[in-house]
Structure formats: structure tokens, C-alpha cells
Nucleic acid binder design. Structure first.
Lengths: 340, 340
DNA sequence: ATTATTGATGTAAGCGCTTACAAATGGGGT
DNA sequence: ACCCCATTTGTAAGCGCTTACATCAATAAT
């Protein structure tokens, strides 16, 4: 005891098994190219030495990492959690590993992360939304790293994407709000700059208003970060407007949860006095009271499909298609008929 | 146009700048070992070629990755989110990158992830809780990868850890519950097998009961996964007990949120009829109604301190100390005096 | 019996980087 | 003028792995 062994290498295994490094490598990567007896001997050695291949060396030699990178705007709340989990599950099934990092909604940080992930040998990248410098795509092309956009679906964009039309989905919800008799509509949106999902959602509300003969310019709009407290703050501001809005549509469930909380603090009853809606249908939507009327996004489906498409691209089996995911309005309790 | 350039290497930069690869490498890694004029010329070339160092090659040559790995039991809910975010922030400040993966509370998966992270060249590892095979620690030692345990503090464990005593913290909360007059106490715990945090929390409740002269064996205990719906289910079962418990202490806020929701569905008023408590004080605790009385864990502080300690270990500046983080009970609305 | 063919294994050339060491350069100090 | 030392730069040896190609043995075909 006490003998300081250091980590074994391919070479050590080869020696122990009495074969060449090539054979060991083959045992590990394409076992069927090696005869049974040899393989057993090698695996034996691998086992007893407790050998783990050095990833960096492998990537370097094979120019393939079986790693997919994903850059999401935030990990702070659950917006991306479920979809990403499904993405990862599917990747794992197909033999890939996922590396995640968050950009904090900062384009500069995102660029940085993309470079990092590529430098780390990611075989493909999952990006959120389309808004992004062309230069980045050039960089990816140069490094021959395919990328797929999720949480957004724009068939006319040149880039492949897996997601849904944020505008259409929100428009549908807005139509429900209008159908419930609301005329003084307000919206708490995420920051729209550089965020096509947030933009789309605002656009959806405006479109529904215009379609119903309402003046889209009367939409009381507040933009803020995706945080519960920010949602609360925005709601308070909106409630000071005159005439006071009767429905507050939120850019996502997190903002809506904040709005609900503030309503509670202000003694405003939801939905009796003011209706509130969300977007995403994350777990939170069912927990708050009243439970949120929101847009359900099939995150798991989106995640899995994105994974399948991206690996197909990585393996040269697809040029990169765009896939549309359906959303639907789910009616809970936070939206009610506008009284009077 | 159309000319397919491929990613530039150190060599390309060296040629473009008219220096050797060693000089370029030095410009990038220890700029002060290179004279100003040369450095400018090199940086110029780096810039114009759009060069990004190949990470795998760098790790391989330098045997240092400036990457820290963290394996957490789950990403599904927010339990680890805030602490991990702080951990990452601090790491970044110190020039490290964080790689996260989740083990889904499966020891086998955790072992796998640890190997993966080490193979990827992680300089250090953050692990959650102490319960773990000795073999794993041997493996880490052999690969000379320091590791730090978080979310738990056990000075008598040989391994360094940053966290708090789960038992003490829960005991304090249980004392509050008992002080409020509750005698029929129930607990919804996470799965305790292989989870020292969950074990500690149960132990804390038992200890408080024993200390107050209650029979710890009368604790009605249900173990379940950390999911809202599981918490709800467990709560329902507990409410069928006779005599019915007057206080339900939950192993974390997520379970408590589920309990609260089920109470609503069953028409049981909290805290008038039954008190409910949580643990962690994640955002959720304030959102649910009634807001949860829970144990506040300073996640950010824990994350930052863990990061500092682990990097110190990686850099050979520390042998691995254990750091204790203080928790405190926060009184909101879900715990009330036991009537009668 | 001889040759072509197939399959298992070995040989060795990198992959793109860091770094020990060598070489070159440029002052002081004498 | 000479030597010494410090500073800057270059040379080249790996890091641990994969894989194209060479080799070799065994079997099938002639």
C-alpha cells in the first residue's frame, strides 16, 4: 500500500493485455473488429486497471466528441428546465453528452459560450431563438459545427429550428382574452431587444387586438426581466394606469406569478377584478392561486425532437429541417369574463 | 467567396505573425513573458484569423483545464439552482468554467458522471452529500482530482465539506413546531437511502421530539421523491392517519408545496387545521399560499464559499477545509399554534 | 501445391497545444 | 573589450488517443 499509482493510459492497458494500443482502442470503439478472445483479455485489463479513456486525447485524435452544447438564456427559473431535460434524455439515448451553459440574456456572453463550447469540441449546438449576429453562424460554419435553434419556429429563416410560433400561440391566447370581453388589455413582456420569442409574443397580442377591431396601440405594455419580483413591480405600475386594464397578459408564467403575488398584496382579486395570463405552462402555473390560464408548450416533445434533429445533422443524416411544435391554450382560473 | 477555410490553428497564427508557436502560446497564456511589440503583432493575427484555441489540445498538453465539475442529484426543481449559480459565478470570477451534470439521485449514474467529468479533465469536483462509495474517492485520488462536498457539513467526516448540519437545522424548526403546541407530528421526507441530507432532516425532527419528551416513534413518516405531486400524494396519505397529525413537516419546500396544494384540494385549511413546514427557502416558499414557514439556507453564500475552497484545493493552496454555513428558521404563515 | 482473399493485429503518424531547454540578444560591471 | 546574466524567442518533445496502412496468418479458390 501507499504506492502512488497514477492514472493508467491506453498504453498501460495494452501492455497488461499483451496487445498493441490500436487493438485496445478498437476494443473500446468498435468491439466487433476484434476477435472475442482478445477482447476479453483486453476488457479484463481495462477492468483491473480501472482505466478510463482520456477524453481530451480522444477528441483530439478522433475529431469527434459525441458532445452537444446548449446555450440557454437563463437557468434561474424553470422556463427551459423541462425542455432541456428531455433534450438531454434523448441525447443520452443516442450516445451523446450534453453540455449546458447560460448566457444571462447577454449576446456577448452567448458568443463567448459558443466559442467555448466549440473549442471544447462540441459536435453540435442548440441555440435558443434566432436573433443573433451572422458572424456567429460563419464561425460555426468554419468550424463545421451544425447548430439548431429551439423555442422558436420560423420556416422562412434560413436556419433550421424546432419550436413553435410565439406570435401565433400568444395570439390565440389573446383571442380568448378578448372573447371574454376584455377591452382594456395590458401586457407584461420580457425584454424584447434581441429576443425574438418575447417580440413574437407581443406581436401576437397586437395581432389579436387588431383582428378584433381593437386599436393595438392601446395595449399598455411594460417590459421587464423574467423575474417574479419584476413581474410584481410591473403589475403595480399597470394597476396605476387610467383607465385600469382589466386583463394583464404576461410574457411568461414567471412574470404572471409575480403579477398574481402583487395583486394579492394590493388586495386586487384575480380573476374577479383583473384577469392575468401566463405563457409556457411550467409547473409554477398550477401552483399559484388562482392557477394560471396560460399557453401550454409541449417542452418534452420539443426537447426530444430537437435532440433527434441535431444528432441527425451532426451525423450528416440531415441538412437541418425545421420542425413545428403545436401549443395550446389551457384554461385554468386566472382568466374570467370581463364583468359589465 | 466559397473558399472553404477551416479553423485556424496555433500554427497558422504563428506563421501569420512571423513567430514560433511557442511565442503565440505565451502571448495567450502568460502575456508578460513576451515583449509588447511581438504581442501586438500576435494578437493582431489572432484577431484577424478569428483564432480560438483548441481546448482538448490545451488540456492535453497543459494537464490543466480550468474546469470544475459538479454533479447534483437533480435539475428538475430549483433546490440546487441558486447555490449552483453562485458557485458558478464565483468560479468564473476566478477564471474557471463549470460543468454540471445531474445524477437523478442514482449512485450508479453519479459514479458514471464522475468518471466522465474526470476524463474530460475537470480540475476539481463538487459533490452533494457524503454518502458515496469509498472506491469513488480512491478513483479521484488516483487521478489527483480534488473534490469537495456541499449541502452538508460534517466535521467528523474525513472529506472536506461546505454546508450546514441538516439535522441541527431541521431540529430547530421542529422545536418551533413543538413550541407551537403540536404533538401529533408527521413528516414527508425525501428518499433517505443514500441521501445523508434527507436522513439528517429526519433525524433532526426525531431529536427535537425526544428532547421535548415526545416519543420519536410516534412520528408519522412518509418517504417519497422530491416532486410536487409526490408531496401532494404523501400529504393525502398522512391526512388519513388516525389520529390525524396537526403538523406536517416536509423534507423540502417542493414537497411542502405539494402538501399545500393537496390541502387545498382536500379542503383542509392551512394553517388553521394543519400546519405545514418546508426546508430550503427557495423562491417557491414565498409564492405558495400560505407562504411557507421553512428553514432558510443561504445558498449563495454556500455556493461562493464552496467555489473558493475548491479552487484553493485545485491550486494546492488548501488541503481541504470544512466550512459551516448557518441556517435559520423563517416564520411565514404556514405554521400556527395548535388550537385546543 | 500455389495464389488470392479475408480478417485480426501491429506500426506509426499525427491531432493542436504547452513547456523544458537551447539559442540569441542586449545591457551592465570590470 | 570581455564576460555574465537576464530577457526574449525558437526548437522540439511529448500529452493519450485514433486510424490509415502494413503485416501476417488462415482459409478458400484454382
Amino acid at each position: 500500500m501507499g504506492k502512488t499509482r497514477s492514472a493508467p493510459t491506453l498504453n498501460d492497458v495494452a501492455k497488461a493485455a499483451g496487445v498493441s494500443t490500436a487493438t485496445v482502442s478498437r476494443c473500446l470503439n468498435s468491439p466487433d473488429r476484434v476477435i472475442e478472445a482478445t477482447r476479453q483479455r483486453v476488457m479484463q485489463a481495462v477492468e483491473s486497471l480501472g482505466y478510463t479513456p482520456n477524453f481530451a486525447a480522444r477528441v483530439m485524435a478522433a475529431k469527434r466528441s459525441f458532445t452537444i452544447g446548449a446555450i440557454i438564456p437563463t437557468m434561474d427559473n424553470a422556463i427551459f428546465a423541462r425542455g432541456l431535460q428531455a433534450f438531454q434524455d434523448q441525447l443520452r439515448e443516442d450516445g451523446y453528452t450534453l453540455l449546458v451553459s447560460s448566457s444571462a440574456y447577454d449576446p456577448e456572453a452567448e458568443r463567448e459560450q459558443i466559442r467555448t463550447l466549440v473549442a471544447r469540441g462540441a459536435d453540435g449546438l442548440l441555440l435558443i431563438g434566432h436573433a443573433r449576429d451572422a458572424e456567429i453562424y460563419e464561425y460555426l460554419e468554419r468550424h463545421q459545427v451544425p447548430s439548431l435553434v429551439a423555442w422558436s419556429y420560423e420556416p422562412e429563416a434560413q436556419r433550421p429550428s424546432v419550436g413553435f410560433s410565439n406570435a401565433d400561440a400568444m395570439c390565440e391566447l389573446a383571442q380568448c382574452v378578448i372573447a371574454a370581453g376584455h377591452r382594456r388589455i395590458a401586457m407584461i413582456s420580457g425584454i424584447t431587444e434581441g429576443n425574438d420569442r418575447a417580440q413574437g409574443r407581443v406581436e401576437g397580442v397586437r395581432r389579436a387586438m387588431a383582428d378584433s377591431g381593437l386599436d393595438a396601440n392601446t395595449l399598455a405594455l411594460v417590459e421587464t426581466d423574467y423575474e417574479i419580483e419584476k413581474g410584481a413591480e410591473a403589475f403595480r405600475r399597470l394597476m396605476a394606469f387610467f383607465p385600469r386594464p382589466t386583463a394583464v397578459m404576461c410574457g411568461n408564467d414567471v412574470l404572471a406569478a409575480g403579477a398574481l403575488r402583487e395583486a394579492g398584496r394590493l388586495g386586487i382579486r384575480v380573476p374577479e377584478q383583473v384577469s392575468v395570463t401566463g405563457f409556457d405552462d411550467i409547473e409554477l402555473a398550477e401552483i399559484v392561486s388562482p392557477a394560471l390560464t396560460t399557453v401550454h408548450v409541449p417542452h418534452r416533445e420539443m426537447g426530444r425532437k430537437a435532440a433527434r434533429e441535431l444528432t441527425a445533422m451532426v451525423e450528416g443524416k440531415s441538412e437541418g429541417r425545421s420542425i413545428c411544435i403545436g401549443t395550446k391554450v389551457v384554461n385554468r382560473c386566472s382568466l374570467a369574463e370581463q364583468p359589465g
